[in-house]
Amino acid sequence: MKSLKILFKTEVILAIRSIDAIFFGVVFPVGLMFLLGFIYKDKPAGDGAAYTMLQLSFAGVAAVGICATGLMGVPISLADYRHKKILKRFQVTPTSPMKLLLAQGFTQFLISVVSSSLVFLAAKLAFGYKLMGSGIKFILVYLLVLITLYSMGMLIASVAPNIKTANLLCTLVYFPMLFLSGATIPYEIMPRGLQIAADVFPLTQGIKLLKGVSLGMPEENFLFQFVLMAMISVICIVISIKCFKWE
Protein backbone atom coordinates (compact mmCIF):
# COMPACT_ATOMS: atom_id res chain seq x y z
CA MET A 1 0.00 0.00 0.00
CA LYS A 2 2.87 2.34 0.92
CA SER A 3 4.55 1.75 -2.42
CA LEU A 4 1.31 2.23 -4.35
CA LYS A 5 0.81 5.61 -2.69
CA ILE A 6 4.33 6.80 -3.45
CA LEU A 7 4.07 5.42 -6.98
CA PHE A 8 0.84 7.30 -7.56
CA LYS A 9 2.35 10.50 -6.15
CA THR A 10 5.43 10.12 -8.35
CA GLU A 11 3.41 9.37 -11.48
CA VAL A 12 1.25 12.45 -10.91
CA ILE A 13 4.34 14.64 -10.49
CA LEU A 14 5.87 13.15 -13.65
CA ALA A 15 2.65 13.71 -15.61
CA ILE A 16 2.54 17.37 -14.55
CA ARG A 17 6.22 17.79 -15.49
CA SER A 18 5.78 16.28 -18.92
CA ILE A 19 3.33 19.09 -19.88
CA ASP A 20 1.75 17.37 -22.92
CA ALA A 21 -0.69 15.39 -20.75
CA ILE A 22 -1.75 18.61 -19.04
CA PHE A 23 -1.93 20.55 -22.27
CA PHE A 24 -3.89 18.05 -24.38
CA GLY A 25 -5.89 16.70 -21.46
CA VAL A 26 -6.75 19.84 -19.51
CA VAL A 27 -5.73 23.18 -21.04
CA PHE A 28 -7.02 22.37 -24.52
CA PRO A 29 -10.57 21.29 -23.54
CA VAL A 30 -10.98 24.13 -21.02
CA GLY A 31 -9.82 26.63 -23.65
CA LEU A 32 -12.21 25.06 -26.14
CA MET A 33 -15.09 25.42 -23.68
CA PHE A 34 -14.36 29.15 -23.37
CA LEU A 35 -14.12 29.48 -27.14
CA LEU A 36 -17.45 27.75 -27.72
CA GLY A 37 -19.00 29.79 -24.92
CA PHE A 38 -17.95 33.05 -26.53
CA ILE A 39 -19.12 31.92 -29.95
CA TYR A 40 -22.51 30.50 -28.91
CA LYS A 41 -23.37 32.66 -25.87
CA ASP A 42 -26.98 31.57 -25.21
CA LYS A 43 -27.90 30.72 -28.75
CA PRO A 44 -30.58 27.99 -28.84
CA ALA A 45 -29.77 24.76 -30.68
CA GLY A 46 -32.10 25.23 -33.64
CA ASP A 47 -35.51 26.92 -33.84
CA GLY A 48 -37.60 26.34 -30.77
CA ALA A 49 -35.10 23.89 -29.24
CA ALA A 50 -35.40 23.36 -25.49
CA TYR A 51 -31.66 23.64 -24.97
CA THR A 52 -28.81 25.91 -26.08
CA MET A 53 -25.86 25.18 -28.38
CA LEU A 54 -23.65 25.35 -25.28
CA GLN A 55 -25.70 22.68 -23.52
CA LEU A 56 -25.50 20.56 -26.65
CA SER A 57 -21.71 20.93 -26.91
CA PHE A 58 -20.81 20.45 -23.25
CA ALA A 59 -20.74 16.63 -23.19
CA GLY A 60 -18.36 16.47 -26.14
CA VAL A 61 -15.87 18.91 -24.62
CA ALA A 62 -16.12 17.12 -21.28
CA ALA A 63 -15.03 13.95 -23.09
CA VAL A 64 -11.85 15.47 -24.58
CA GLY A 65 -9.98 14.68 -21.36
CA ILE A 66 -11.05 11.03 -21.56
CA CYS A 67 -9.93 10.90 -25.17
CA ALA A 68 -6.51 12.47 -24.51
CA THR A 69 -5.71 10.32 -21.47
CA GLY A 70 -7.23 7.11 -22.82
CA LEU A 71 -5.86 7.17 -26.33
CA MET A 72 -2.56 8.99 -25.73
CA GLY A 73 -1.65 8.92 -22.03
CA VAL A 74 -2.47 5.29 -21.23
CA PRO A 75 -1.02 3.54 -24.30
CA ILE A 76 2.06 5.72 -24.73
CA SER A 77 3.13 5.57 -21.09
CA LEU A 78 2.63 1.79 -21.02
CA ALA A 79 4.60 1.29 -24.23
CA ASP A 80 7.29 3.65 -22.94
CA TYR A 81 7.66 1.83 -19.61
CA ARG A 82 7.93 -1.44 -21.44
CA HIS A 83 10.41 -0.04 -23.95
CA LYS A 84 12.58 1.35 -21.16
CA LYS A 85 12.42 -1.97 -19.31
CA ILE A 86 11.02 -0.23 -16.27
CA LEU A 87 8.41 -2.97 -15.92
CA LYS A 88 11.22 -5.52 -15.95
CA ARG A 89 13.08 -3.65 -13.23
CA PHE A 90 9.94 -3.79 -11.11
CA GLN A 91 9.90 -7.57 -11.51
CA VAL A 92 13.14 -7.91 -9.52
CA THR A 93 11.76 -6.05 -6.52
CA PRO A 94 9.11 -7.23 -4.03
CA THR A 95 6.60 -4.86 -5.58
CA SER A 96 4.68 -5.84 -8.67
CA PRO A 97 4.83 -4.18 -12.10
CA MET A 98 1.03 -4.36 -11.92
CA LYS A 99 1.19 -1.63 -9.25
CA LEU A 100 3.00 0.68 -11.64
CA LEU A 101 0.27 0.11 -14.22
CA LEU A 102 -2.37 0.75 -11.58
CA ALA A 103 -0.68 3.98 -10.45
CA GLN A 104 -0.41 5.07 -14.06
CA GLY A 105 -4.10 4.30 -14.62
CA PHE A 106 -5.09 6.33 -11.52
CA THR A 107 -2.97 9.22 -12.74
CA GLN A 108 -4.64 9.30 -16.15
CA PHE A 109 -8.03 8.98 -14.46
CA LEU A 110 -7.22 11.92 -12.21
CA ILE A 111 -6.20 14.09 -15.18
CA SER A 112 -9.42 13.18 -16.97
CA VAL A 113 -11.63 13.97 -13.98
CA VAL A 114 -9.82 17.28 -13.33
CA SER A 115 -10.22 18.15 -17.01
CA SER A 116 -13.96 17.46 -17.12
CA SER A 117 -14.57 19.19 -13.79
CA LEU A 118 -12.80 22.33 -15.00
CA VAL A 119 -14.73 22.22 -18.28
CA PHE A 120 -17.93 22.00 -16.24
CA LEU A 121 -16.92 24.87 -13.96
CA ALA A 122 -15.89 27.04 -16.93
CA ALA A 123 -19.21 26.41 -18.67
CA LYS A 124 -21.22 26.96 -15.49
CA LEU A 125 -19.45 29.99 -14.04
CA ALA A 126 -18.61 31.85 -17.25
CA PHE A 127 -21.64 31.03 -19.36
CA GLY A 128 -24.34 29.88 -16.95
CA TYR A 129 -24.40 26.28 -18.18
CA LYS A 130 -26.98 23.98 -16.61
CA LEU A 131 -26.93 20.20 -16.78
CA MET A 132 -30.48 19.23 -17.74
CA GLY A 133 -30.30 15.53 -16.91
CA SER A 134 -29.36 13.74 -13.71
CA GLY A 135 -25.87 14.45 -12.42
CA ILE A 136 -25.41 10.95 -11.00
CA LYS A 137 -26.45 9.35 -14.29
CA PHE A 138 -24.06 11.63 -16.15
CA ILE A 139 -21.18 10.58 -13.88
CA LEU A 140 -22.01 6.89 -14.34
CA VAL A 141 -22.14 7.20 -18.12
CA TYR A 142 -18.94 9.25 -18.00
CA LEU A 143 -17.22 6.38 -16.18
CA LEU A 144 -18.49 3.89 -18.74
CA VAL A 145 -17.12 5.94 -21.64
CA LEU A 146 -13.85 6.34 -19.73
CA ILE A 147 -13.53 2.58 -19.20
CA THR A 148 -14.22 2.00 -22.90
CA LEU A 149 -11.59 4.46 -24.10
CA TYR A 150 -9.00 3.26 -21.55
CA SER A 151 -9.57 -0.33 -22.58
CA MET A 152 -8.95 0.73 -26.20
CA GLY A 153 -5.74 2.43 -25.06
CA MET A 154 -4.68 -0.73 -23.24
CA LEU A 155 -5.40 -2.71 -26.37
CA ILE A 156 -3.12 -0.44 -28.42
CA ALA A 157 -0.34 -0.80 -25.84
CA SER A 158 -0.74 -4.57 -25.80
CA VAL A 159 -0.71 -5.22 -29.53
CA ALA A 160 1.95 -2.64 -30.48
CA PRO A 161 5.30 -4.42 -30.75
CA ASN A 162 7.30 -1.28 -29.93
CA ILE A 163 7.05 2.33 -28.88
CA LYS A 164 7.11 3.64 -32.47
CA THR A 165 4.13 1.56 -33.53
CA ALA A 166 2.31 2.53 -30.34
CA ASN A 167 2.88 6.21 -31.14
CA LEU A 168 1.68 5.76 -34.71
CA LEU A 169 -1.43 3.82 -33.69
CA CYS A 170 -2.28 6.44 -31.07
CA THR A 171 -1.98 9.27 -33.57
CA LEU A 172 -4.10 7.37 -36.09
CA VAL A 173 -6.83 6.74 -33.54
CA TYR A 174 -6.61 9.87 -31.42
CA PHE A 175 -6.78 12.72 -33.92
CA PRO A 176 -9.67 11.47 -36.08
CA MET A 177 -11.65 10.69 -32.95
CA LEU A 178 -10.81 14.03 -31.38
CA PHE A 179 -12.02 16.03 -34.37
CA LEU A 180 -14.76 13.84 -35.86
CA SER A 181 -16.48 12.28 -32.88
CA GLY A 182 -18.22 15.48 -31.79
CA ALA A 183 -15.75 16.16 -28.97
CA THR A 184 -14.37 19.36 -30.47
CA ILE A 185 -16.48 20.09 -33.55
CA PRO A 186 -20.17 19.59 -32.77
CA TYR A 187 -21.51 16.49 -34.50
CA GLU A 188 -24.74 18.33 -35.34
CA ILE A 189 -23.06 20.85 -37.66
CA MET A 190 -21.27 18.14 -39.69
CA PRO A 191 -22.62 17.22 -43.12
CA ARG A 192 -24.69 14.02 -43.16
CA GLY A 193 -22.01 12.00 -44.99
CA LEU A 194 -19.37 12.89 -42.44
CA GLN A 195 -21.76 12.04 -39.63
CA ILE A 196 -22.22 8.54 -41.04
CA ALA A 197 -18.43 8.12 -41.25
CA ALA A 198 -17.97 9.52 -37.74
CA ASP A 199 -20.51 7.05 -36.37
CA VAL A 200 -17.89 4.34 -36.79
CA PHE A 201 -15.79 5.76 -33.94
CA PRO A 202 -16.65 4.39 -30.52
CA LEU A 203 -16.14 7.86 -29.05
CA THR A 204 -18.88 9.27 -31.32
CA GLN A 205 -21.31 6.80 -29.78
CA GLY A 206 -19.94 7.53 -26.32
CA ILE A 207 -20.49 11.26 -26.79
CA LYS A 208 -24.04 10.67 -28.08
CA LEU A 209 -24.67 8.77 -24.88
CA LEU A 210 -23.16 11.53 -22.71
CA LYS A 211 -25.07 14.16 -24.63
CA GLY A 212 -28.35 12.34 -24.27
CA VAL A 213 -27.91 12.02 -20.52
CA SER A 214 -26.72 15.63 -20.11
CA LEU A 215 -29.79 16.90 -21.95
CA GLY A 216 -32.10 14.71 -19.88
CA MET A 217 -33.39 12.71 -22.85
CA PRO A 218 -35.13 9.38 -22.18
CA GLU A 219 -32.55 6.66 -21.55
CA GLU A 220 -34.13 4.04 -23.79
CA ASN A 221 -33.08 6.15 -26.80
CA PHE A 222 -29.46 5.35 -25.97
CA LEU A 223 -29.66 1.67 -25.19
CA PHE A 224 -27.69 0.83 -28.36
CA GLN A 225 -24.79 3.12 -27.38
CA PHE A 226 -24.81 1.81 -23.84
CA VAL A 227 -24.59 -1.83 -24.88
CA LEU A 228 -21.99 -1.01 -27.55
CA MET A 229 -19.70 0.75 -25.04
CA ALA A 230 -19.93 -2.14 -22.60
CA MET A 231 -19.22 -4.66 -25.37
CA ILE A 232 -16.19 -2.75 -26.71
CA SER A 233 -14.80 -2.53 -23.16
CA VAL A 234 -15.13 -6.25 -22.52
CA ILE A 235 -13.60 -7.19 -25.88
CA CYS A 236 -10.67 -4.78 -25.54
CA ILE A 237 -9.92 -5.80 -21.96
CA VAL A 238 -9.97 -9.52 -22.79
CA ILE A 239 -7.69 -9.09 -25.82
CA SER A 240 -5.25 -6.80 -23.98
CA ILE A 241 -4.91 -9.19 -21.06
CA LYS A 242 -4.30 -12.06 -23.50
CA CYS A 243 -1.71 -10.17 -25.58
CA PHE A 244 0.03 -8.17 -22.88
CA LYS A 245 3.81 -8.52 -22.70
CA TRP A 246 5.93 -7.26 -19.84
CA GLU A 247 8.82 -6.61 -22.20
Binding site: I6, T10, E11, L14, S18, D80, K84, T93, P94
Partner: peptide, 17 residues
Protein backbone atom coordinates in the same frame (compact mmCIF):
# COMPACT_ATOMS: atom_id res chain seq x y z
CA UNK B 1 14.08 5.27 -15.45
CA UNK B 2 10.87 7.19 -15.93
CA UNK B 3 11.28 10.42 -17.89
CA UNK B 4 11.72 13.55 -15.79
CA UNK B 5 12.26 11.71 -12.53
CA UNK B 6 14.71 13.19 -10.03
CA UNK B 7 17.46 11.32 -8.20
CA UNK B 8 15.80 11.81 -4.83
CA UNK B 9 12.44 10.62 -6.18
CA UNK B 10 13.77 7.39 -7.69
CA UNK B 11 15.54 6.66 -4.39
CA UNK B 12 12.39 7.28 -2.35
CA UNK B 13 10.28 5.27 -4.76
CA UNK B 14 12.67 2.31 -4.81
CA UNK B 15 12.96 2.34 -1.01
CA UNK B 16 9.16 2.16 -0.74
CA UNK B 17 9.14 -1.23 -2.50
Amino acid sequence: YQDKIKVKEICELTASF
